[in-house]
Design a protein around this nucleic acid. Sequence first.
DNA 1: AGCGATTTGTACGTATGTATG
DNA 2: CCATACATACGTACAAATCGC
Lengths: 249, 249
Amino acid sequence: MIEAIWARLADAQSGQRPKYQALRAAIVGAISGGDWMPGERLPTEAELAQLLPYSLGTIQKAYGELVKSGLVVRARGRGSFVAPVDRRMSEPWHCRFLADDGTILPVYPRLLGHEVAAKDPRWAGLFGPQVKIIRIDRTISISKEFEVLNRFFVANTLAKSLIRLPRAKVETINFRVFLTRELGLPISRTRQTISMADRRTWRRLGLRSRPHLLLEAIAYTPDDDVVYFQENYIPPNPRKLLFESELRF
Amino acid sequence: MIEAIWARLADAQSGQRPKYQALRAAIVGAISGGDWMPGERLPTEAELAQLLPYSLGTIQKAYGELVKSGLVVRARGRGSFVAPVDRRMSEPWHCRFLADDGTILPVYPRLLGHEVAAKDPRWAGLFGPQVKIIRIDRTISISKEFEVLNRFFVANTLAKSLIRLPRAKVETINFRVFLTRELGLPISRTRQTISMADRRTWRRLGLRSRPHLLLEAIAYTPDDDVVYFQENYIPPNPRKLLFESELRF
DNA sequence: AGCGATTTGTACGTATGTATG
DNA sequence: CCATACATACGTACAAATCGC
């Protein structure tokens, strides 16, 4: 239970920051790392205060922030729990379409391949200078109704661990979850834009039906480094594309 | 200086809630009521702790929340200040378009009018049965480049306080901010969808240019009650529509 | 239904660190 | 170097909700 914290805490505390922030980071790590699963009960304040060299107030502050960010839910007399998934924010699909009844349509990804991304002035701005960028292409069939073309751009170093995976896995994997869970790369913020893909682009990409929407997404670490960039070309379709955002009070 | 708080505080405290929340509400009131202007210096922690029957910790907690919500900025050794307007939180426009340089394009809203919304089976599901829904129509010119038609649906009771405002204010106001700040209606979650507006709809609404996008947004309280629902009809345009998810850490 | 143990929520008071002026 | 003021941290106390007996 509590062991999951120790190593992460030492790690988090090393970088000279307030105790409550280190503790918060350690708990986030334990949750996103899978040590503590959704619904699972977390240590009580008193437990932590006893087992860690932190006071009650410090622990409360850490827990308090986790509650506000939605990762933890607490109740008097019951305890603190990892928030169940459906109470959490945008589970990581950038591209979620709704059925008529409001449920999320199933997606069927298919891997097309990967290659070194063409030079683009945008890369320097996003990833920094002289970072080699790999592009991974997939098509994602939305409930077999229509297909979204997904182009995923990521630094060479990260791409390697993705590409090494067995094909079946690369096909279906959610990159964002993989990067968080496996590589310990937390993503704290995403920025998404929607626009009309311009004519030349969808011709160049060989897209069939006419005016495609372009959904771009950039994922950032807490330090505002870019983890990945992706483009989704969405053909005309009758479905609703979902975005959720959770705010501060 | 401090007088601005007193009356508001008594008011806020009446409703039996924690002191730190009452204090926060009172400060928000003083700011949005114009008593304390952007950039102005706020009382120090020690001052408040002396003048009010609150302890330092309580005051710190209230200030802390205001900082997180972006309404107040603080600096060691200097003091606490009402956040200058441009430093304030990503003002929660649902409809924000980006210029080529990544800045947000200015919006110019114009009020069209309001009326009782037509019956719609959706209302019962959203707002509950037998709630009278008012529709407020506005057009929002995006940087004078194109116009978005905004239809804002809200319960009769809330609509009243909106409609009572002077016209100039209703035109430019951000409803979401107003509901939060003035009516103390916290919005903790929004759900947005994008789809292609169907042909019949944009004909019915008298929209000129062809295939409009429909951006729908639902805002929820922390208890998952619906505060408002809105539709935005977006004509074809070359701009990027921005979504940000400010997440966990 | 009552009672006590547990656990979070709020509040207080104090102490020390650190950036500003 | 000193006073100011925010930032972090500790320890304590009590209220309020929950759960098991």
